[in-house]
Design a binder for these strands. Structure first.
Length: 583
DNA sequence: GCCGTTTTCGGCCCGACTGTTTTCAGTCG
């Protein structure tokens, strides 16, 4: 049980209590505890054991007791009772744009709307018209948001899927007749949002016996992750050729579908080969295409590794991340696939926060984590004054911080610290700081944090105005999306990419697993336009320094090489690239 | 629910801004 899972339970308790209309301070306490726990650098279990957990202000006896219970049983009774009473789906109401605690309470308590289906029905039947506090515009917002949430219903962000994958791995590791296994499909392609988890399992002898053993384990295992065996009536495999392969279907994590393919050693890698790509990609492989449409066995692929399969098909090996679109097939046939960027190609992080603004840890601790990552350079980019919620720095504090960064840099061995800022792009496209101040910064990341409801034309003009500011080096999380929760705001990305190319402005891949903004579709366009990309963590705490992995995943899925990414360059070269003519 | 004690319970409340609604709920990191 990891901190993040305990944190989620407390967050959900807070949400359910909010909808119920419980006392606000009790709710706040759960929210605060959830925030503290998710930012901890140490495991809750270790802190409890050492008697240090309650030394954090906001963690009391009740939270410690419940945390212990969660660590032991995977959940706590108070939470289970709330779920039994209100239904876990009530939580979805709070995910809607335009719906906060009060409105969710009105929907749930006064109108009997318990989940998104009820809400959908209420919207269609006009039940929400004339409800006090919900006007025409709010109804529109809720309605749009409902459509968006339904599109993502049943999906999970990659970070969550990788956690689930770890749980499932423990179960498979303990099954004697499993020789080896590998995650495939969406998870192997490292999709930002996964629709399902798929696993290929190589069985040691009797496939049916292994299947029965695994079904038994999935039904009775003691892991904190609940699994429910599902036997679909009319299941058809994504591609007919996989029909004869034995499968187990189950649900995890309250509704995420899992498919386990069970095969013998001779078929292991060919099943992996067939299940990793999207159907669109697989269909583009000429010699495989026809056979996948039939149920005949693909015997010529048996007993081969994936590399050998690609070789036999007359093409170079395609990394799993590139098996989404068909175009990589052509490149592989021509032996023209890009040499994808690797994790350790990154030499620095150009977007990070500290407790000077809304980060959880002090600058020294964040820098220490960067040194542990063996980075060559590290930019401190706390929020600017307009992000008052995030304790953004006014000009005076920024000047003080610049000095502090320089001093810390003097004292610190093995890494170069860069003084920076994540500057708000204001409504009219201007920035929070004067040019005089911006000129003193090594790194200027400019981001939109407010006024998300402008028209596409206004928003595009706003960001282009920032791009044209000669002091702006990087545009942070360009589209403002939160995966599965908030749509991108309206903005013309191709126009932005064009402006970035004209002004030598860098676009960011933000490594926050709930953002991963820009996504591969846009990054590919940016690369084509010759725009450099920065892969940043936007870390607000030490654990979040690990987010670079997600950022690199997106870069790889976008077909980026080391040369396409700004922060793979040595510091001197980075300075040259950023040191544009400023008159 | 947590904290800090006047040690048995009262006070706690991100906050500036937007925008819909008509006084306040929702939003942002």
């Amino acid at each position: 049980m990891k901190n993040i899972e305990i944190s989620v339970i407390f967050k959900n308790i807070a949400k359910l209590l909010t909808i119920k209309g419980e006392a606000s301070f009790r709710i706040k306490s759960y929210e605060k505890a959830a925030d503290i726990i998710s930012d901890l650098a140490e495991d809750v279990s270790e802190l409890i054991e050492a008697g240090k957990f309650q030394s954090f202000s906001g963690i009391g006896k009740t939270i410690e007791d419940k945390s212990k219970e969660i660590l032991e049983t995977g959940t706590c009774q108070a939470y289970e009772k709330l779920i039994a009473e209100m239904g876990i789906e009530a939580l979805d109401l709070l995910e809607l744009r335009g719906v906060g605690g009060k409105t969710a309470g009105v929907l749930y308590n006064d109108l009997g709307i318990k989940n998104l289906n009820d809400l959908s029905y209420a919207l269609d039947s006009g039940k929400l018209q004339g409800v006090k506090g919900i006007g025409k515009k709010t109804l529109e917002t809720i309605s749009d948001s409902l459509i968006f949430l339904k599109t993502y219903k049943g999906t999970r962000i990659l970070a969550r899927c990788l956690d689930i994958a770890k749980h499932l791995s423990k179960i498979l590791d303990n099954c004697d007749s499993v020789n080896q296994y590998q995650f495939t499909g969406d998870v192997r392609r490292l999709e930002e949002v996964c629709r399902s988890i798929e696993i290929v399992v190589e069985c040691s002898d009797d496939i049916i016996a292994t299947k029965n053993a695994l079904v038994e384990t999935f039904s009775t295992h003691q892991q904190p992750l609940q699994t429910v065996i599902n036997e679909p009536q009319n299941y058809t495999a994504k591609i007919p050729i996989l029909e004869p392969i034995e499968k187990i279907h189950l649900f995890v994590d309250s509704g995420l579908p899992v498919t386990v393919y069970l095969c013998s050693a001779v078929d292991f890698e060919s099943v992996l080969f067939l299940t990793t790509p999207t159907p669109e990609h697989l269909n583009a492989i000429p010699s495989v295409n026809e056979r996948c449409e039939s149920k005949e066995s693909l015997t010529e692929l048996q007993n081969k590794t994936e590399v050998e399969i690609y070789d036999k098909l007359g093409m170079s090996f395609i990394p799993p991340e590139l098996r989404k679109y068909p175009d990589s097939v052509t490149l592989a046939i021509e032996d023209q696939l890009p040499q994808l960027i690797e994790f350790n190609d990154l030499r620095g992080d150009l977007h990070t926060h500290t407790d000077w603004s809304d980060g959880a840890h002090c600058m020294e601790d964040m820098v220490e984590a960067a040194i542990a990552r063996e980075l060559d350079y590290y930019a401190i980019t706390d929020h600017s004054v307009s992000s008052s919620v995030a304790n953004g720095l006014d000009q005076q504090r920024l000047l003080k911080q610049i000095k502090y960064v320089h001093q810390l840099n003097e004292k610190t061995e093995g890494i170069t610290l860069l003084a920076g800022s994540e500057v708000d792009i204001l409504r009219d496209g201007s920035l929070d700081y004067s040019d005089e101040i911006l000129a003193q910064l090594d790194i200027v990341v400019a981001s939109v944090h407010s006024n998300f409801t402008l028209s596409e034309a206004e928003m595009t003009k706003r960001v282009i105005c920032a791009i044209e500011n000669p002091y702006v080096m990087i545009i942070g999380h360009l589209t403002g999306r939160l995966l599965g929760r908030r749509q991108e705001y309206p903005i013309n990305v191709p126009e932005i990419i064009h402006a970035a190319a004209e002004n030598n402005t860098i676009l960011e891949i933000n490594g926050s697993p709930s953002r991963l903004d820009l996504g591969p579709e846009y990054v590919r366009q940016a690369k084509e336009a010759g725009v450099l990309i920065a892969v940043n963590t936007d870390a607000h705490s030490i654990p979040e320094s690990e987010r670079y992995k997600y950022g690199v995943n997106v870069a790889r899925r976008s077909g980026l090489t080391k040369e396409d990414v700004l922060n793979t360059y040595p510091l001197e070269q980075l300075r040259q690239i950023l040191n544009r003519d400023i008159s």
